[in-house]
Amino acid sequence: MDNLIKMIEKLTNTFGAPGYEDEVIEVIKKELPFLSSERDSINNLYMGLHEKEANTNRPTVALDCHTDEVGFIVENVNRNGSISFLTLGGWHVGNVPASAVLIKNSRGEYIRGIVTSKPPHFMTDEERNRLPKMSELTIDIGTSSYEETTEMYGIEVGNPIVPDVTFVYDEKIEIMRAKAFDNRLGCAASIEVLKAVRDEKIENVNVVGAFASQEEVGLRGAQVAAYRVKPDFAIVFEGSPADDSFKEGTAAHGALKKGVQLRVVDGAMISNPRVLKFAKDIANKKGIKYQVIAREKGSTNGGKYHISETGIPVLVLGIPTRYIHTHYSYASIDDLKSAISLAIEVIKELNYDVIKGF
């Protein structure tokens, strides 16, 4: 297992519900010890921001990704010891019952549990023929009373929760399976590009890693990061929904092993066509695989960057991810490498005149 895959394993196994991204931040800082680091009150992490402020004669490129993952939060501890919860991010209720979760309690301990699901033996006909409501679901940690859950296991209202999943890599087909590919794959891409900027001595632009918090609950961290970094150009990495498990042939625009996704439109942004052409031309010249997608719904942090200040040109680079916003997702290491390679080549071609042309 190479170093990149080991880093992804570490990033995806790490706990990082929206607003509680602290452990992910520490992993990122350890991967980039050669850069300055700064964290703000919303839990954004900025890598290389101070270096940018010392070189004001160059344009600045923000490498954006988000550190949070879809999760839950404790809403109440019930009399029988079960835990009621609220969602953090876009879950579909059909993907939640009978799944394993990890709760970080008030003592900083990890408590394992499962989301409850009523056995079919006890279901009414009406219950058999409908999905449950999210408010009907609870988490069971094996306890039988309020006191056991709160006193013995330290569970309190407000404790964050994430899926309990461990990373695996299939070397035969070079496919990864884990939680939180949305967007720890983006975090891995940003880290690798920042390392390449150092190793290849790329000095035509300042490159700042903007590791944003709380994307899954409304792109909140990115709104702050855009104003803090004030980039001239932004590259947004995202673990982006793959559609090749339910679409075939030319209808699938987000397929594993077909390359990085270039996003034309989504629910929060219409991509700048001049930026897209610039990226496509470089990809074609360098032989980097890519696919173009148009999405009616969903969004990325690009939705905040492109309307920040007087408008920032944005390139969204997606890594296709099957079964996004569920416990288990698949992604290809080759697609991630395509995203990293394209970002590096784009950065090498940027200067003030090129950026003004967008």
Rank of each mutant, 00 (worst) to 15 (best):
S213P: 11
E53Q: 11
L131K: 02
D281W: 07
A178Y: 06
K29E: 15
E192S: 14
E156M: 12
M176A: 14
L131Q: 10
S190A: 15
V74C: 05
E38Q: 11
I355V: 04
V165M: 07
E192V: 06
A331F: 02
N55L: 09
E53G: 06
Y352G: 01
R177Q: 12
A255L: 03
G218F: 00
V316C: 07
G287F: 07
K195C: 09
V224Q: 01
N44E: 13
N301R: 01
V346S: 07
K289W: 10
N76W: 09
S329A: 13
A178V: 06
K280M: 12
V314Y: 04
S245A: 07
K172S: 15
E136D: 11
Q261D: 13
W91S: 03
T321W: 00
G94R: 13
Q261K: 14
K280R: 15
V27A: 03
I191E: 04
Q223W: 09
I333P: 00
F85T: 03
K230S: 07
V74I: 15
R79H: 08
A331Q: 10
G108Q: 02
L131Y: 05
E148I: 01
D353Y: 11
G318L: 04
E309L: 14
A343E: 12
V168E: 10
E203K: 13
S332N: 09
T326M: 03
V197G: 11
S145T: 15
Y227T: 08
K104I: 01
E203P: 11
R58F: 07
A98W: 12
A54Q: 13
S106Q: 07
L137A: 09
E156R: 10
I155S: 08
A98H: 05
F237S: 02
I355E: 03
A226T: 10
D232W: 08
N183R: 08
L102G: 02
P231A: 10
